[in-house]
Design a protein around this nucleic acid. Structure first.
Length: 395
RNA sequence: GGCGGGGUAGCGAAGUGGUCAAACGCACCGGACUGUAAAUUCGGCCUCUCUGAGUUCGCAGGUUCGAAUCCUGCCCCCGCCA
């Protein structure tokens, strides 16, 4: 049975709204997936995440493999039990971590900057056909991860959705490199699926990952290759370009050739305008560090495109501001009456409560954006809703 | 009144003859952050006609080629003793 039930499609775009069924419950799509990289949505407890309207969280194979170890988590009964989250969990394969060990952040890589804190970075020792050798950032030991390893770890974690092991192709590489890397990712896909067929949990869905960089032919070829496989869902990964317009173009090339029936996940994307654009391009689920990370960095999401949907509450001008983050915000933080001035004070003083409140606010904001987009697809009003959100309507 | 310690850029605090416009922290200003080794990180932060120049290290003198650093006097502050 197909995991994704499509309830409605938007006549004016490729958007769909539906329900993605997993062993631990349904995901209302389109949906945002908060990151719980190391088995926690930083600062929040699972019940809070769910109460904000999120149906699923994302854990990370690479990090949980190094610490506390997938076998230990398995002894606890799997990742759901370990972290106390009963809902659906998707686990990322570790492919992105290979990227970030070599290049730092996405922005650093695109802009050609040396990653900051490079000394703390582990090291990719080599990437070859078989897999990836790297140095553990925990104890410096040499570790090995291959497609089979990643699937084995994800099987032990017991996630509902597993992502195949891929190489997240950087932006600053040649087309030739991207082509070869993408083909290798395709071969890794087969190995992941083979391993999963023999050893993987019956009820664990597997997503293939489309690569191809910013090259249309490579993207299309990759999308078709992934779609031709027996994976349950399809994720879009790798470099999506340096500018948003390019990103939308790349995503558009991809979703144009994907089979409609299977769920599509856009990896690592989650700024507000990107969510709107992504949904219109036919994406069902997104994950992104942005709302949680920005929250911990003192940034609160606001319905203001001119400010990139964010205000920096660490600024002194908010010290005496007794208003909410934005008027009418229904999130737990603002509904409780917390002021910008209070939040600024908390954040400046490194009070954990401040980081928690901003994380709650930001995740609530993103959840409402997704709910509105979903409802708009169901109502056939996505065009107007998209315009409103992009113009700064409060979700 | 005596003894001791101290006055350094918005604050705290290094520096104790030259490489000092002066470490470092805080505060402040600005930037970054999109499959999270991030409660992280980068830059600025005396003034200006600014890849150079000018004024600074309680105040005023002095020694010296050269002083935040040494000497003299003065003014404040802190501790202990009277």
């Amino acid at each position: 049975m197909a995991p994704l039930e499509i309830l409605a499609t938007d006549p004016g775009s490729r958007a769909r709204a539906g329900v993605l069924r997993t062993a631990h419950g349904d995901i209302r799509t389109p949906a945002f997936v908060p990151l719980a990289t190391k088995a926690t949505v930083r600062g929040l407890v699972p019940a809070e995440v769910a109460s904000l309207g999120h149906d699923i969280v994302l854990g990370n194979t690479f990090h949980l493999f190094l610490e506390p170890g997938h076998e230990r988590i398995a002894r606890f009964g799997g990742l759901h039990r370990f972290m106390g989250w009963d809902g659906p969990i998707v686990t990322d394969s570790g492919g992105f971590q290979v990227f970030s060990m070599g290049h730092g952040t996405v922005a650093d890589e695109i802009k050609g900057r040396a990653s900051h804190g490079a000394e703390r970075h582990g090291k990719v020792l080599r990437i070859d056909e078989d897999g990836v050798a790297f140095r553990s950032y925990i104890d410096g030991s040499e570790q090995w991860m291959a497609p089979e390893t990643s699937m084995e770890i994800q099987a032990a974690l017991g996630s509902d959705l597993a992502l195949v092991f891929d190489e997240c192709t950087p932006f600053n590489v040649t087309r030739e490199y991207t082509a070869r890397s993408t083909q290798r990712t395709h071969r890794w896909l087969d190995r992941c699926l083979d391993w999963h067929d023999r050893h993987g949990p019956e009820d664990q869905l597997v997503y293939g990952i489309v690569q191809g960089g910013v090259h249309q032919d490579l993207r299309v070829e990759s999308a078709e290759t992934i779609a031709a496989s027996r994976c349950d869902g399809i994720a879009i990964g790798g470099s999506l370009g340096a500018e948003k317009d390019q990103m939308y173009e790349v995503v558009g090339w991809t979703t144009a050739v994907l089979p409609p029936a299977r769920p599509r996940h856009l990896l690592g994307i989650g700024e507000i305008d990107d969510l709107v654009a992504g949904v219109r391009l036919g994406i069902d689920t997104f994950d992104c560090a942005m709302p949680t990370r920005l929250g911990r960095h003192g940034m609160a999401l606001v319905p203001d495109p001119g400010r990139r949907w964010r205000i920096d509450l660490t600024a002194a001008r908010y010290a005496d501001d007794d208003g909410p983050i934005f008027d009418g915000c229904p999130c737990p933080c603002c509904a409780a009456g917390h002021t910008r001035g209070y939040l600024r004070y908390l954040v400046k003083n490194k009070e954990l409560t401040g980081l928690r409140l901003l994380t709650l606010h930001n995740l609530a904001f993103v959840a409402r954006v997704m709910q509105r987009l979903r409802q708009a697809v169901l109502d056939g009003t996505l065009g107007a809703e998209s315009e409103a959100l992009l113009a700064g309507a409060a979700p």
